[in-house]
């Protein structure tokens, strides 16, 4: 789909440029004559092709229903979309927007908790114990 959209965009842009250039030349040569029909048609045709190309090459729409949108986040989980930062970290898709509330781990769960209240000593202790046990995966 992206390929087809790209092709249509290129073809449309070529036709549009050609139509605009023809118009300019025509008005420069015959300032008082009306524009010939073929130039008008080419202009309209190029705009149609460009519009189709832009629609086809646009990214897929997001669900506009809250439950669907949230369900998709839940189902797919965070996943990469083929973009990386300079540090080599992949930029992931949209995650749970309420994750910062730290409510998904249950009460006194194993999760990370809330960012502002991060329990650094508890996490360090957990890690040292894991290392002492042999660091099994």
């Amino acid at each position: 789909m992206a390929f087809l959209g790209g092709t249509l965009n290129t073809v449309g842009a070529v036709f549009l440029t050609h139509a605009v250039y023809s118009t300019s030349e025509h008005t420069a040569t015959f300032p008082h004559a009306p524009l010939p029909l073929d130039i008008t048609l080419e202009l309209l045709f190029s705009i149609l092709i460009l519009s189709a190309g832009i629609v086809l090459s646009s990214p897929t729409l997001k669900p506009i229903q809250w439950a669907r949108w949230a369900g998709r986040i839940q189902r797919e989980g965070p996943h990469g979309e083929g973009k990386w930062t300079r540090e080599g970290e992949e930029i992931l898709s949209e995650g749970d927007p309420f994750g910062f509330l730290g409510l998904d781990g249950g009460i006194a769960g194993k999760g990370e908790g809330r960012r502002g209240f991060w329990d650094v000593r508890g996490k360090r202790k957990e890690y040292t114990e894991w290392v002492k046990e042999g660091g099994s995966r």
Partner: peptide, 29 residues
């Protein structure tokens, strides 16, 4: 399985994942 990511760290980080995350320090530094 998703590779441990420093940009959006997972909501649960068990020790092995924490180790993998912290091992990214030398190249970044």
């Amino acid at each position: 399985m998703l590779h441990p990511n420093l940009l959006t760290p997972p909501s649960v980080i068990p020790p092995p994942v924490a180790l993998q995350l912290s091992q990214k320090a030398p190249p970044i530094l």
